[in-house]
Simulated assay, not measured.
Amino acid sequence: MDKPKLWTKDFIIVTTVNFFITLVFYLLIVIMGIYVVEHYNASTSQAGLVTGICIVGALIGRIFIGSQIEKIGRKKTLYIGLALYTITTAMYFIQIDINFLLVIRLLQGIVLGVASTATGTIVAQIIPRTRKGEGIGYYSMSSPLATAIGPFIGFLMIQHASFNMIFALCVVVTIISLVTAFFLYVPKLEDFSTTEKELKRFSVSNFIEIKAIPIAIITLVVAFCYSSILSYINFYAIEIDQVATASFFFLVYSLAVLLSRPFTGRLLDMKGANYVMYPAFILFTIGLFLLSIGNNAIALLTAGALIGLGFGNLQSCTQAIAVKITPPHRMGLATSTFFIFLDAGLGFGPYLLGFFITFMTYGNLYGLLSGVVLLSSILYFFLYGKKEKQLANE
Rank of each mutant, 00 (worst) to 15 (best):
L6N: 05
D10E: 07
T15S: 11
T16L: 15
I21Y: 11
I21A: 08
Y26V: 12
L27P: 08
N41E: 11
N41L: 14
A42R: 06
S43R: 09
V56W: 15
I65S: 10
Q68N: 08
K71V: 04
K76L: 13
I80G: 03
I80M: 06
I80V: 12
L82C: 04
G113H: 04
A118R: 01
A124F: 02
Q125W: 00
Q125K: 00
P128I: 00
R129P: 14
G133V: 06
G135S: 09
G135E: 06
Y139E: 11
S140V: 09
S140G: 11
S143R: 02
L145D: 02
I149C: 08
G154R: 05
L156M: 14
F163I: 00
N164I: 00
I166F: 01
A168L: 14
C170Q: 01
V173Q: 04
I176Q: 09
I176L: 13
A181M: 03
F182M: 12
L184Q: 11
Y185A: 12
Y185Q: 15
R201M: 09
S205C: 07
P214W: 00
I217C: 03
I217H: 00
I229G: 10
T245M: 04
V252H: 03
Y253T: 04
G265V: 05
M270Y: 15
G272E: 01
V276H: 11
I282R: 07
F289P: 06
A299P: 04
A305I: 03
A305C: 00
L306S: 08
G312H: 01
L314S: 02
Q315H: 13
C317T: 14
V323C: 05
P327F: 10
F338S: 00
L353N: 14
I357M: 13
M360Y: 13
G363L: 01
S370E: 05
L374H: 12
L375T: 02
A392P: 05
